[in-house]
Simulated scan of single mutants.
Amino acid sequence: MSVKPEAASALFAGPFALATLSTPDEPAFPALVTADARVLDLKVALDDAWLTTRRLLEDWDSAVSRLTALAADSGWEGRPLSDFRVHAPVEPRQVFQSGANYRQHVIDLHVAHRDPADDRPEEERRAEAADIMDRRAAEDLPYVFIGLPSAITGPYDDVVLPSWADRPDWELELAAVIGRPAHRVSVEEALEHVAGYTIANDLTDRATVFRRDMPQIGTDWLRSKNAPGFTPLGPWIVPAGSVADPGDLRLTLKLNGETMQDESTKDMIFGVARMVSYASQTARLLPGDLVLTGSPAGNGMHWGRLLRDGDVMDASITGLGAQRTRCVAEAAR
């Protein structure tokens, strides 16, 4: 589908963003989108028939200056954004996902997932969870696991709820997009490897998070998070230079028009730089890879209301635009 008018009116911070667009007659191409909703086909502008958004990110230091110049050039007319279908802005090779990274969210989940035999007052269990979060912060221990690129879908695509997913939930997240290879980088160096930021909604089937057949195994992120389309991404990548402070952005998710998540990235236990640095101590982060930074309070588990057929999620992050996705039950599809 073409870009939604609601999203087009929000757009993004800064003079331009990177997108991947198409029309029924044109296959997907990397595009420069300006703040006034004009589109420039970068394959044409940069005279490279094989260009992709990921290839731009592989030479980001050079590309960002060329893109900045193109955005400032008033000599090209461009086409209206509303003419195009908006896809996920990049196809990453790796997706690094952060768990338990918003203090209030983790406290809420700690209470919601309580042992049925635990009859302590809620205030006592909340205090216990708060102590755990404070200890994690003091000990500097982020939690990162791997997601699948095949779970990614576009920012306006339908999200198919698998028939086996009994308790599908939303998780709005800030995603950092890597622009320079990063391996064993320090926290101080980490943001130099971030090309920009985008929006991710990291859906989770709460019923399959924990293995019931053998609880000692722990979490099952493959089953609970990686169904096709479980990670709506985009609509675009906003360059890091246009985002004043990734540690002070507002994340808002509405379900059928009702606000469910509304929190600042200030509530993150570990900031973007720490998450990128931490992931890089083990893995080699590559251009185009995503580092998802966790989800704030206000998930379906908190509200006692999980996703179902026909639900519409509107998600936005300060300066990064907005996405709208509709849930469709697999049986209905």
Rank of each mutant, 00 (worst) to 15 (best):
A100I: 14
V106K: 12
D131Q: 13
D108F: 03
A112E: 14
H110G: 08
M133V: 09
R93H: 11
P116G: 05
I107V: 13
A100Q: 11
P116T: 08
F96C: 06
S98G: 09
H113K: 15
D119C: 13
G99D: 01
M133I: 07
R120D: 03
H105R: 06
Q97F: 13
Q97D: 15
H105M: 06
V95W: 04
D131K: 12
H113L: 15
F96K: 04
R114A: 14
D115C: 10
H110F: 15
D108P: 02
Q97Y: 10
R114T: 09
A129F: 00
F96I: 07
Q97H: 14
R126G: 00
M133S: 06
R114Q: 12
M133L: 12
P121S: 04
P121H: 02
A117D: 15
V95H: 00
A100F: 12
A130V: 01
R114S: 14
V111W: 01
M133Q: 14
A127R: 10
D108T: 05
V95L: 07
R126Y: 00
I132K: 11
D119P: 06
A100D: 09
I132Q: 06
E122M: 03
H110A: 11
D134E: 15
E123D: 02
P92R: 01
R103C: 04
A112V: 10
E128F: 05
R103I: 03
V106G: 02
P116E: 08
